[in-house]
Amino acid sequence: MSTIQASGVQRIADAFAHSGKRAALMPYLMGGFPTLEESVRIGRSCIAAGADLLELGVPYADPLADGPTIHEAGTRALAAGASLGGVLEVARELGEAVPVVLMCYANMVLAPGAERFVERLAQTGASGLIVPDLPFEEADGVLEACDARGLALVALVAPTTTPRRLAAIGARARGFLYTVSVVGTTGERAALSERFAEVVAQAKASTSVPVALGFGISTPEHAGQAADAGADGVIVGTRLVRAAAESDDPAAAVGSVVASLAEALL
């Protein structure tokens, strides 16, 4: 067992404990979309509107866990010149105010080596890392590197996760347990899946860290339902990326959606 330092892990725990809401609100934004500068403005606008933590996506050419909206935003961010270094600078600027958790696909983490990647991430002041295509069987090296620097390697569970896997993942979870509400990729849905309350309950029973629900949460009503079901946190992504994509003033547009979500969680 490696020892976990305070810093990032502690900041995440504090953010969940002291959100002042029924559930902590974690907006997702795509780093570098529409530009690096604008994504910093979007992040600041989220914080001003009531975000307790931020999930910051690193654009990737082959995002297997993402639906068309976030895929397209990543493609446009890359076309606009976003690089890992640029997105890490976004993390640095936003991480001063709230804990920032980086969402990055496995190949970009493994390309320089997990040690070097995590070291670079830690230097930006980020608090955690989500790798959506790194199940726990493949995660040992990344987990060790994160633990050594006090960063939370956030694990995911899905509605398809078996009880036995859930127990194994819950026991190793750091920061919070990212609970995927639907069988599918990221994207807006008209309603939460029928099983979401059951998924939240099972996730909570499996772990001692907070449980945050994500994928498919797109309205204040959904956010309220997630809190009612006992989720400790709510992650909203595609709805906000779409707001940024559709507006001439992305930061204002995203901020207004985040404010309505935050209000539903009071």
């Binding site: 297997l64 493949e138 995911l156 569970v157 398809t160 996760t161 993942i169």
Partner: peptide, 12 residues
């Protein structure tokens, strides 16, 4: 080799 996929697929 290995299994670098979203958690949703691991049981499948």
């Amino acid at each position: 080799g290995g299994q670098y996929v979203p958690e949703t697929l691991m049981p499948a």
